[in-house]
Amino acid sequence: MSKQKDKSQISILIHLASMDGDIDDTEKELISRIGMAHGLSEEELQEYFDHPPEKIDFSKLSEDESFDTLYNLVHLMKVDGKIFDEEISYCMNMAKKLGYPLEAVMDLYSQVHANVKLKSEIQKIKRKYHKKG
C-alpha cells in the first residue's frame, strides 16, 4: 500500500473516531497500530491526528485496501465500547463510497470484536463481497 493510500485510510479512521467529540486512548492506539503497520512514522500519524485531510479519493484504493478500510472502520467503531448513531451512519456512508452494500457493514459488525480478530470469518465476508470484475 502506498503512503498516500495509508494516509487516506488513517484520515477516514480519525474522522470516525472524532465523531463523538473525543478520540479516546483505545481508538488512538488502534489507529496508530494500523498506521505503523503500514510504515507511517509516529510523527506522520500525529500530523494526521492534528490535521486530517478533508478530501479522500476512494477510486484510488484497490479492492483489498477498500475492504481493509471498511473492516478497520467497523473495528474502530466498536473498540471503545461506545457506539453512536453518527458512527453507524458514517460507516454506512463510507461503505457506499468504498463500493460495498450496507449489508457488508452488518456482516462485519457481527464478526468484529474489540480485542479478537476472527480471520477465517473476516475472509469469508471479504470473499462474499469480492467485486466481480
Results as ranks from 00 to 15, higher is better:
Met1Lys: 05
Ser2Glu: 15
Lys3Phe: 10
Ser8Phe: 11
Ser8Val: 00
Gln9Cys: 10
Gln9Trp: 03
Gln9Tyr: 06
Gln9Glu: 14
Ile10Gly: 03
Ser11Tyr: 12
Ile12Asn: 02
Leu16Cys: 01
Ala17Thr: 04
Ser18Asp: 14
Met19Trp: 03
Asp20Met: 06
Asp24Pro: 00
Asp25Gln: 12
Thr26Val: 14
Glu27Ala: 05
Glu27Leu: 04
Glu27Cys: 11
Lys28Ser: 06
Glu29Ala: 12
Leu30Glu: 08
Ser32Trp: 05
Met36Trp: 06
Ala37Ile: 01
His38Asn: 15
Gly39Met: 11
Leu40Trp: 02
Leu40Arg: 01
Ser41Arg: 07
Leu45Thr: 04
Gln46His: 14
Glu47Arg: 13
Phe49Ala: 05
Asp50Gln: 05
Asp50Ser: 07
His51Pro: 02
His51Trp: 12
Pro52Lys: 03
Pro53His: 07
Glu54Gln: 12
Glu54Pro: 01
Glu54Cys: 05
Lys55Cys: 06
Lys55Phe: 14
Phe58Lys: 04
Lys60Val: 15
Leu61Trp: 04
Ser62Val: 09
Glu65Met: 07
Glu65Phe: 01
Ser66Lys: 10
Ser66Met: 08
Phe67Arg: 02
Phe67Pro: 00
Leu70Asn: 01
Leu70Val: 01
Asn72Met: 06
His75Ser: 12
Leu76Ser: 02
Leu76Gln: 01
Met77Arg: 03
Lys78Asn: 08
Lys78Met: 05
Val79Asp: 00
Val79Ser: 03
Asp80Met: 03
Gly81Ser: 10
Lys82Met: 13
Ile83Met: 12
Phe84Ser: 08
Glu87Lys: 07
Ile88Thr: 07
Tyr90Ile: 00
Tyr90Asn: 04
Cys91Arg: 00
Met92Asp: 08
Asn93Val: 08
Ala95Trp: 01
Lys96Arg: 14
Lys97Ile: 04
Gly99Val: 02
Gly99Ala: 08
Glu103Ala: 13
Ala104His: 02
Met106Val: 12
Met106Glu: 05
Leu108Ile: 07
Tyr109Ser: 08
Ser110Thr: 11
Ser110Ala: 14
Ser110Ile: 10
Lys117Ser: 07
Lys119Trp: 10
Ser120Met: 13
Ile122Val: 13
Gln123Tyr: 11
Lys124His: 09
Ile125His: 00
Ile125Ser: 00
Lys126Leu: 09
Arg127Ala: 15
Arg127Ser: 12
His130Glu: 15
Lys132Ala: 09
